[in-house]
Amino acid sequence: MKYLKLGVMQTLVIERKKDFGAFLRAAEDTAGEETVLLPKKQVPAGAEKGTAVEVFLYKDSSDRLIATTRRPLLTVGEVGKLEIREITKIGAFLDMGLERDVLLPFRERIGELKPGISVLVALYVDKSERIAATMRVYRHLKVAEGIAKEQTVRGTVYELSNPGVYVAVEDKYFGLIPRAEAYGNFSVGQEITARVIRIREDGKLDLSPRRRAFEQMDDDAELLLKKLSAAGGELPFHDRSEPAEIEAAFGLSKSAFKRALGKLLKAGKVVKTQQGIQLKS
């Protein structure tokens, strides 16, 4: 298609009207080489030949190009959450706010899919010239704009890998929780709040789900107290415990554990034992 653009909002003009609707063309296509049907129910009242109309182009169930004045929930290249309507043998169909749902092929999914849940996706035009959805949103995200270091941001986890936890910040910017900061459990689709710890030269963001050390220490100390209480007042951990053991038990780095433990020891709330730590009676 030279003039008509699939999957985006564009302004076209009415080339001719019929009983069943109006055929639209791009303003620069003066010869009317490419036209698309806008069904009668979508034609604005009083519109005539030459009237400009903003429309979205997609393909109907018969694979015919069609226009609608309805604005979809997402356009091609945008990232956002869409609800799963149903799951079939070829993939999941998502509600994009139009008469026709959009397909998320199984090869483009990450994790398990269930009807009724919303998933973070980007829309693209596939090889067969149809609009489709993908959960592999990395290449569709943008560099950060208007975000500062130490700012708290919202994001959606979209991939877990060796470098860390990939997050779509505000569902549109590149974000990564490096492995060194990725304490706790994360899952694809999880919504989180995080702190910006670094803005890279390329505009991508490094994140931490934890506050700065001196701010986080109180919460970590409270966590240790709750764990001790739930365990009957004693735990087999101390400042010489292995980092992996500490992370598995508390979801904390060893340094964060030691800071929290030091705070509790100084406050006289716990004592060290030969086996670990114990609530002070």
Results as ranks from 00 to 15, higher is better:
residue 11 T to C: 06
residue 73 L to I: 10
residue 234 E to Y: 08
residue 255 S to P: 01
residue 217 M to G: 13
residue 91 G to I: 07
residue 1 M to K: 13
residue 145 E to S: 14
residue 116 G to T: 05
residue 195 R to P: 00
residue 108 E to A: 11
residue 75 T to R: 07
residue 68 T to R: 08
residue 209 P to D: 13
residue 101 D to S: 13
residue 273 T to F: 02
residue 236 P to W: 09
residue 241 S to F: 05
residue 70 R to G: 09
residue 4 L to Q: 06
residue 235 L to D: 03
residue 192 I to R: 05
residue 192 I to L: 10
residue 185 N to A: 15
residue 257 F to Y: 02
residue 9 M to W: 05
residue 98 L to A: 08
residue 151 Q to P: 00
residue 3 Y to K: 06
residue 167 V to P: 00
residue 274 Q to C: 06
residue 95 D to V: 09
residue 263 K to T: 10
residue 164 G to K: 07
residue 46 G to R: 09
residue 210 R to P: 00
residue 203 G to S: 07
residue 72 P to L: 12
residue 233 G to N: 03
residue 242 E to M: 13
residue 262 G to M: 04
residue 28 E to L: 13
residue 27 A to S: 12
residue 107 R to E: 12
residue 96 M to Y: 11
residue 162 N to P: 00
residue 246 I to V: 14
residue 4 L to H: 03
residue 152 T to W: 14
residue 233 G to L: 02
residue 222 E to F: 07
residue 80 G to F: 09
residue 15 E to M: 13
residue 192 I to Q: 06
residue 113 L to K: 10
residue 164 G to F: 10
residue 103 L to I: 06
residue 86 E to K: 15
residue 135 M to D: 02
residue 82 L to N: 02
residue 123 L to Q: 02
residue 20 F to N: 12
residue 94 L to C: 00
residue 237 F to S: 03
residue 177 I to W: 01
residue 156 T to W: 03
residue 47 A to P: 00
residue 184 G to W: 02
residue 221 A to C: 08
residue 110 I to Y: 05
residue 99 E to T: 08
residue 220 D to R: 12
residue 176 L to I: 07
residue 45 A to F: 10
residue 198 R to S: 14
residue 15 E to L: 15
residue 198 R to M: 11
residue 10 Q to R: 09
residue 114 K to W: 04
residue 40 K to M: 13
residue 187 S to Q: 14
residue 275 Q to G: 13
residue 132 A to D: 00
residue 4 L to G: 03
residue 204 K to F: 11
residue 36 V to S: 09
residue 273 T to W: 01
residue 171 D to G: 04
residue 8 V to Y: 06
residue 71 R to G: 01
residue 26 A to M: 02
residue 109 R to W: 05
residue 222 E to G: 14
residue 267 A to Y: 06
residue 268 G to D: 07
residue 190 Q to A: 12
residue 127 K to R: 15
residue 111 G to T: 09
residue 217 M to I: 15
residue 143 V to L: 14
residue 170 E to C: 03
residue 74 L to T: 02
residue 164 G to S: 06
residue 155 G to C: 09
residue 149 K to Y: 00
residue 186 F to I: 06
residue 75 T to Y: 01
residue 181 E to R: 12
residue 156 T to F: 01
residue 161 S to P: 01
residue 248 A to Y: 03
residue 250 F to E: 05
residue 204 K to Y: 04
residue 277 I to H: 00
residue 231 A to P: 00
residue 208 S to T: 13
residue 67 A to T: 08
residue 10 Q to N: 04
residue 64 R to Y: 13
residue 247 E to P: 01
residue 136 R to E: 15
residue 27 A to Y: 10
residue 279 L to P: 01
residue 189 G to S: 07
residue 6 L to K: 11
residue 195 R to Y: 02
residue 68 T to Y: 08
residue 33 E to I: 07
residue 136 R to M: 14
residue 272 K to G: 03
residue 88 T to H: 11
residue 80 G to E: 04
residue 121 V to S: 10
residue 182 A to G: 04
residue 161 S to T: 11
residue 266 K to F: 15
residue 41 K to D: 15
residue 81 K to D: 08
residue 65 L to Y: 00
residue 249 A to R: 12
residue 271 V to W: 06
residue 243 P to V: 12
residue 230 A to C: 07
residue 2 K to R: 15
residue 81 K to P: 02
residue 121 V to A: 10
residue 269 K to T: 02
residue 148 A to M: 14
